[in-house]
């Protein structure tokens, strides 16, 4: 994870196109300027970044399922629950599943866990639209390669 660059996913473990589910792993970094403010003397992963992490796992799921034909943008967060503190160097598992593939939007459920204990979960809404810039599409494909998103399994 590079929090200050919004690189929240380290590695995709599974993209199951049939079950419409993605599982990924990350480790909260030991050091980040973010921890200087959140909080001084008591570093904790900010809840909003846990939500961003769930959104990115969901986003890569949508990208994997639509084979990078359109870009999902986070549009709504519902029923977000932040159940426990997350400290630096904590390994986490992120799971995202597609609840609904709508016309121009998608709904997912996502959760983060550590050692089998749920840290947080939420229902997320995405607007799904054509990539607004070719540079963004190229970067998303590059990031997908970085995290090992297996596009060979994605539908064509």
């Amino acid at each position: 994870m590079l929090l200050e660059y919004f690189q929240m996913i380290d590695q995709v473990a599974t993209l199951d196109c049939e079950a419409k589910r993605l599982i990924a792993h990350s480790t909260i970094p030991e050091d980040s300027p973010i921890f200087e403010g959140h909080f001084p003397g008591h570093a904790l992963m900010p809840g909003v970044l846990l939500i961003e992490t769930m959104a990115q796992a969901s986003g890569y799921l949508v990208l994997g399922l639509n084979n990078f034909s359109q870009m999902p943008f986070l549009a709504g967060v519902k029923e977000a629950k932040l159940r426990s503190f997350v400290e630096p160097q904590t390994p986490i598992t992120i799971e995202a599943s597609l609840e609904h593939d709508g016309s121009g939007f998608a709904m997912t459920k996502a959760a983060i866990s550590h050692d089998g204990q749920k840290i947080c979960d939420a229902k997320l809404t995405f607007k799904v639209m054509p990539f607004p810039a070719p540079e963004l599409e190229a970067e998303m494909r590059r990031q997908a390669g970085r995290i090992g998103l297996n596009l060979e399994n994605a539908p064509t």
Binding site: A75, G76, H100, D101, G102, S103, G104, F105, M107, T125, K127
Partner: peptide, 20 residues
């Protein structure tokens, strides 16, 4: 954005995909 929630519920209720 609220309309997306309505379309989601409509899609589910009627088993269709509203071509929004």
């Amino acid at each position: 954005l609220d309309f997306l929630d309505i379309v989601y519920a409509v899609d589910k209720e009627f088993g269709i995909k509203v071509p929004l």
